[in-house]
């Protein structure tokens, strides 16, 4: 399983890496902003099984990144993990094409549960 973690905080990426490591054999890639994420996606022809995206990042923010990904790829599961908690923001992200939304602060259990639920739901639909 390949997961791309996009967050400008290295600490947050490390936390996500450790928590999502519980999903089993996971190969992680990391990006510090939207532009780095697009490069990582372009250089991974086999694609990712999941992309975790932060909203507020330098160079290219998360919402722009999601829109850019969804222009070409409707299938890869995208989860936004962000401090943006307003309903309007959540709606905006869903419209852009995220499959689920995790609001910071979250516990490791909350994150893992959200990711598992999302992956299972998408698997069932497929």
């Amino acid at each position: 399983m390949k997961i791309l973690l996009v967050d400008d905080s290295r600490t947050m990426r490390n936390i996500q890496k450790k928590v999502l490591g519980d999903l089993g054999a996971v190969e992680f890639s990391e990006a510090g902003d939207g532009l780095e994420a697009l490069t990582a996606i372009a250089s991974t022809p086999e694609g990712f099984n999941l992309i975790m995206v932060d909203w507020n990042m330098p160079n290219m923010d998360g919402i722009t990144l999601i829109s850019r990904i969804r222009e070409k790829d409707k299938a890869t599961p995208l989860i936004m993990a962000t401090t943006e908690a307003e309903k309007s923001r959540v709606m905006e992200a869903l419209k852009a094409g995220v499959n689920n939304y995790v609001i910071k602060p979250f516990t490791p259990e909350m994150l893992l549960e959200k990711v598992k639920t999302t992956l299972e739901k998408l698997k069932a639909v497929a």
Partner: peptide
């Protein structure tokens, strides 16, 4: 962000 770190 800090609170998420502490929860972890």
């Amino acid at each position: 962000e800090k609170a998420t770190e502490i929860l972890y």
